[in-house]
Simulated assay, not measured.
Amino acid sequence: MLAENLRRARAERGLSLSELSRRSKIGKATLSQLEAGAGNPTIETVFSLSRALEVPISDLLDNERPNGLTVVRAADVEVLSGAAVDLRPLRGIESGDAIVEVYDQQVRTDSRQDSLGHVGTEHTIVQAGRLGVRVDGREVELGPGDYVGFDGLLPHSYTALDGPVRSVLLLQYRADQRLHSAKAGPACLAETP
């Protein structure tokens, strides 16, 4: 699904592979492989593409919008892994002008997941363990039941402080940031510092 969605998003924005490579800091060869369906992207790659194309992550990974009763079995969901984090996409929820993606997030012991930033607002609720969160130079420590929220465009990182951390990650977007939105065109793709 990533290959099809990536090609479509790039075409809708009128971007060449070279321009997307420059904006995402991902090599042209890697982008070409991803568009051909031959790559296995990491969290870092998908978040970089989300940032460069200014679309929700779920728009790159899936098109299905489930209705009615939704059950997501852990064994049925492909895990998106990064340097320190494993994400399982659970559900995308649309309500009015807002979209919220729900992820099961696990941060591995003795590792840090860095992000240069991406579109949307990031919300994390710790379920188990102690999580170090750094956002734009500010650091906080969270325990079970604690919450943090911040602008996803800011550079940020997650660190498991003394063992693995289990948390719920919510990514919140505006509806006009959707890949399939009529409003999402070249004018929406402003460079962010």
Rank of each mutant, 00 (worst) to 15 (best):
L2G: 10
R10D: 03
A11P: 11
R13T: 12
G14R: 04
G14A: 02
L15M: 14
L15R: 07
S16G: 09
S18D: 12
E19G: 08
S21W: 08
S24R: 09
K25Q: 14
K25Y: 07
G27F: 02
K28C: 03
A29F: 01
Q33L: 13
L34W: 06
L34Q: 10
G37R: 03
N40D: 10
I43G: 13
V46Q: 11
S48L: 06
L53K: 08
E54Y: 10
P56E: 02
D62E: 15
P66D: 01
N67T: 13
N67V: 09
G68I: 00
T70L: 15
V72M: 09
A74M: 05
A74K: 14
A75L: 08
V77Y: 07
E78T: 11
L80A: 03
G82C: 04
D86K: 03
R91Y: 12
I93R: 05
I93T: 08
E101I: 10
Q105A: 14
Q105Y: 06
Q105D: 10
R108Y: 09
T109F: 01
D110K: 03
H118R: 08
T124C: 11
I125L: 14
V126M: 03
G132L: 02
D136F: 02
R138F: 09
V140N: 12
E141G: 12
L142H: 08
Y147R: 02
L153C: 05
S157G: 08
A160T: 12
L161A: 02
S167H: 02
L169T: 14
L169D: 10
Q172W: 00
Y173I: 01
A175E: 13
Q177K: 01
R178A: 15
R178V: 11
L179P: 04
S181R: 00
A182M: 11
A184P: 04
C188R: 12
A190K: 12
A190G: 12
P193S: 13
